[in-house]
């Protein structure tokens, strides 16, 4: 168990366009109640949203740090427009902050100053991770689609270089980003006159196949999985393979309770099977999946080989 308690639980950046009020309330609860060690903040998906909540950022950081959380600022996944280049550079230039880079434009601006590698950076293998470590990376979050053997090989290499290794264990998987806003498109608008219609869907806009099967979620320029990734049953294997940080992605569910479920399993307080049943309940209508980890279709749910 001693090894397990070394494992850090992190909260990824909010992917959706939650209102400033909703974000304030969310992070206040996280600060006060959630047993997460590290919290990633910042707008990663759409640069148009940032003005709505960036003014609150200093207060949110202070609140979380006072509660003992380590705060990391994440940069945009897609950098194309002037305001996106500027936003990325502004974060990369903050010497005092710990940052997670999600686009090569951020790597360019950060130079060899320490930084984390975000899940959009495509750090799939030991050669790339070694390259990144040589450029100042201290930590790497692996792409959500990586299967277990590749995670283990990447974690081994990253660990040998002294890097932290993070894997998303809860929440919708980011499956694609685009220059086009699909939220705006669904409402007959374009990205430039979107009127922030993505705010209507706090857990993404559901897409169903024409024979009425849930398939994907739209979040502005991002496409997400319909199912939530759930690697709670696989957490022990991830840790044994050298993963040091487990990432929970914020969804429109009780994330404090979700974090508690993971913490209880990591601390050995609750058996995995019982905890996973609780997690399914907390996740409401969302299906849970672990297919990527098991090297099969991501939406699939593969039963654990043996009870934990």
């Amino acid at each position: 168990m001693a090894v397990k308690t070394m494992t850090k639980l992190t909260l990824g950046p909010i992917a959706y366009h939650w209102s400033a009020d909703a974000r304030r309330d969310f992070y206040a609860r996280i600060a006060d109640e959630a047993p997460v060690d590290e919290v990633y903040l910042g707008e990663v998906i759409c640069s148009k949203r940032a003005p709505f909540h960036e003014a609150d950022l200093p207060a949110t950081i202070e609140r979380l740090e006072r509660a003992g959380k380590r705060v990391i600022l994440s940069t945009l996944a897609e950098v194309m427009l002037k305001r996106e280049r500027k936003a990325t550079e502004d974060i990369a230039e903050m010497d005092s902050a710990e940052i997670e880079v999600n686009n090569a434009a951020g790597l360019f601006a950060r130079g060899k100053r320490p930084h984390r590698i975000g899940p959009f950076m495509n750090a799939y293998n030991e050669a790339t991770i070694a390259w990144m470590a040589g450029q100042g990376a201290t930590h790497v979050c692996l792409p959500a689609e990586m299967p277990a053997p590749a995670i283990a090989a990447a974690a081994r290499a990253a660990g040998a270089l002294g890097l932290g290794v993070e894997v998303q264990v809860y929440g919708r998987a980011s499956l694609a980003v685009s220059a086009r806003c699909y939220h705006a498109r669904a409402h007959g608008r374009t990205k430039d006159n979107c009127q922030f219609v993505c705010e209507e869907d706090s857990d993404g806009m559901p897409l169903r196949t024409r024979d009425d099967r849930p398939i994907l979620r739209v979040n502005g320029i991002q496409t997400l999985s319909e199912s939530y990734i759930d690697l709670l049953p696989e957490a022990a294997c991830l840790i044994a393979d050298g993963v040091t940080h487990l990432r929970l992605m914020p969804q429109a569910v009780d994330m404090v309770a979700v974090a508690q479920v993971f913490r209880d399993v990591l601390d050995g307080h609750v058996p995995t099977g019982e905890a996973d049943a609780h997690l399914a309940m907390l996740s409401g209508h969302a299906g849970l999946s672990n297919g990527f980890y098991h090297g099969t279709a991501g939406y699939r749910r593969i039963a654990a080989a043996a009870p934990a």
Partner: peptide
């Protein structure tokens, strides 16, 4: 940056 195919097909 697209994992749509992997999500449905593996």
């Amino acid at each position: 940056r697209c994992s749509l195919t992997n999500y449905l097909t593996g």
